[in-house]
Amino acid sequence: MNGAAQASSMIDVRGLDVVFGKGADEVRAVRDVSFRVPEGATFGLVGESGSGKSTVLRALSGLNHDWTGQVVIAGQAQTPKRDKAFYKLVQMVFQDPYGSLHPRHTVDRILMEPLSIHGFGDAERRIEQVLGEVGLGPSFRFRYPHQLSGGQRQRVAVARALILEPRILLLDEPTSALDVSVQAEVLNLLQRLKQERGLTYILVSHDLSVVAHMCDELAVMNNGAVVEELSVERLKSHAPEHPYTRQLMVASLGYDRAAIDRFEDFGVEG
């Protein structure tokens, strides 16, 4: 990384800590996490369940206020409270498309909501355009979520995130609730949208193959801390350094009794 790349970095996180609870119940969910994402790149956060990767994303998005550290997004230092302009810049796609759409709102209403919050004028055109972009025709516009499949719902969720024309999209395991063939469709959609709009992505996933397909750089998290940062080329050439990363790679190849018996717990000391 040279100076020029650093200057154009879209997201810069330094020493991020997230602590839940107080006193004896205190849990340090994220410990001293730092990373930098250049504009137009896709950055992966990988780790098992409970490793703190989604917590990092919730702190970045402004959903979680209890964090300390330094977060700079598009050149602006962020405080826990965000203003309306921030949400035009950063949007998020959630893991579970069955839980992220309001069950009593039609697709039209779901897409209308962000437009009316931010006072956009030409709602009709924008809704039609964004539905087309995510590959849903006008026939889907007045359906309720229960009339859509999982993949279609996730497309609606992507459309909702894109309708404010953000520059950053935070993706919280966007395909882990979908079956394999639909996963590929949604990932390809996200790739295409990124190229068309020059978006910057942070992708949280436990699936190394998804990360290898989507990302340029990735950070491996375990017990709330980043254990290794590496490029996708290094990952693909099977040359990660940290034993936890190697363990994840073995796990992603499928279930192997002998390999799993050799797994260790890389707890963070202290």
Partner: peptide, 9 residues
């Protein structure tokens, strides 16, 4: 879905 509308401001 409530988090999502919060994220829309």
């Amino acid at each position: 879905f409530i988090s999502a509308v919060r994220l829309q401001g």
